[in-house]
Design a protein around this nucleic acid. Sequence first.
RNA 1: GGUCUCGUAGCUCAGUUGGAUAGAGCAACAGCCUUCUAAGCUGUGGGUCGCAGGUUCGAAUCCUGCCGGGAUCACCA
Length: 600
Amino acid sequence: MIEMMIEKILVDKTIKAVSKLYSKNISSEFITVEKTNKDFEGDFTIVVFPLLKFSKKSPEETAKEIGNYIKSDVKEIQNFNVIKGFLNFVINDKFWLDFFKNNISNEHYGFKKPKKTKPVIVEYSSPNTNKPLHLGHIRNNLLGYSLSEILKANGKNVIKINLINDRGIHICKSMLAWLKWGDGETPESTGIKGDHLLGKYYILFDKKNKEEIRDLVLKGSTEDEAEKNTSLMIEAQEMLRKWENADEEILDLWKLMNSWALKGFDKTYKRLGIDFDKINYESKTYLQGKALVKKGVENGCLLQKEDGSVWADLTEEGLDEKLLLRKDGTSVYITQDLGTAYRRYNEFYPEKIIYVVGNEQIYHFNVLKLVLKKLEEDWADKIMHLYYGMVELPHGRMKSREGTVVDADDLMDEMYETAKKTTEELGKIDSFPKEEADKLYHIVSMAALKYFILKVDPKKNMLFNPEESIDFNGNTGTFIQYTYARIQSIIRKAGKEYVNNSINGFPENFTLLKKEKEILKLLYEFPGVVEQAGENYSPAIIANYVYELVKEYNQFYQEIPILKNVDKEISDFRVALSEFTGNIIKKSMNLLGIEVPDRM
RNA sequence: GGUCUCGUAGCUCAGUUGGAUAGAGCAACAGCCUUCUAAGCUGUGGGUCGCAGGUUCGAAUCCUGCCGGGAUCACCA
């Protein structure tokens, strides 16, 4: 693996050079090794400006002296050139070919061995059971899944958890509306997917409640009063109290309707291709939260007001007081989260608990950590809120009440149809049996959707333009899949002979073409990219990398013959290079949760 | 108002630990399929990196201020 460390060698040798040439001992922070800019000759570049104060010479002279020293000392250096203060090294072909031979058959290339350390918990998805998933959840699910894969590739012991928010006032709203106006409808009787059926009643509740608010305002209430005092809201609150008191009738209804939602979610998850190691239910952890809060009151960490409600005083931390239990004793969102976090920590003793949750909850997680600290749970700092930006639509934000949400299932349906239509028009897979064709439409459409979302830096808000998202040209998941399929076609055509000869038959004095070397350099970068994506919790880094690789490969493919009009040895090398590239494309895409087809 | 975040080509985005002439895709225009999959490749046009200072050999990148967008500051989750 010595060839993996060429950058490090350059740093070490530069330190040595400065010591020998200028009699100064410097640390590595003065030296940056970077990729040589494409417009110049070379593979790696050292910037010598920071070294001038040691050499007391001009940039050009310093660079030349250091270049000469390193060239004579490092056998991988073929030559170097100096432009202004930039010292550009050309690494010899042998180095790149050795790298190639040593890694092409390495299944684990770029991935670190799993370590048996404390686990990292990644919580993501975490839906409410009162309505179906929408585009915002899709971003969450894709990020959470991809991030988990990336952390695994970095040797982490990842536990993926989905926390189902199956209790609380929101689900009572759906239940209440269904009781009042549902007429006994079920997913079976209506043919509507369970989560969508619940959503229908959630929306209905909101509509009826709004009407009531309007009436109250007309009768002279203020808006605020009206919102709290509708008969529907009061009934929903009453239902929540009954639920927390284990009222049997309510619990039965709740179980039934939750099961509808969960069945619906399972379908959507399956189609999205995401999964979990564990499922938690807030209905099973909120009591732990209440217990924690009670203990806090007893210890004097928290304060209870006259009406019975319980608060955390965060004024010293620069925040307000935060409600933890309502006056009727029922718990709120953060109470549940306290309990969930506590149980999680005490079950797994993780090195980190990552919550993949939107940036609108930054405040919530800050408060969560502060309250835990207040409760003297010193592991609070292991909690990390990995927040991501909102998904906006061309005409603005998604708002469920205004009907501008993009439903997850509908979206996937549309993508599928577009993939089917486009593929049929191209007519390349007319010989496919129906089942295989259907699978391809699915794979292609999901790639378009997933890549479109994951290529954007998670932290940033993103615009979801439906038309662009189903575009299959340019910087898209489909384009990347297409390149992979091309490579597989090449390998198939190369046939058995290639397989037998593959990597052993290169001539010793092999000279790489520029394009070949460019591809090798990108392949060489892969492990660093995986590492960087892990450190930054960013699938986008993988997405941008694989796009760059694929672009480079397509240029190669277009310009340079692989199978035809070349010597067998050269052809074998180029097929092998293609295969290596294909492997890395596949690995990268899998890190994003995207599959690649052999033909398309 | 406080806190956080973002502002790069007409549009969507790269460019994170300061490095050379700021890059892709889409859209527009012009080329390339008797030859390995044209869901591809090549070329042209398109920029005050929000504005103004500062730090230094060097700033889209770091600091300060301002302008503009967004999020949040719930007895919703």
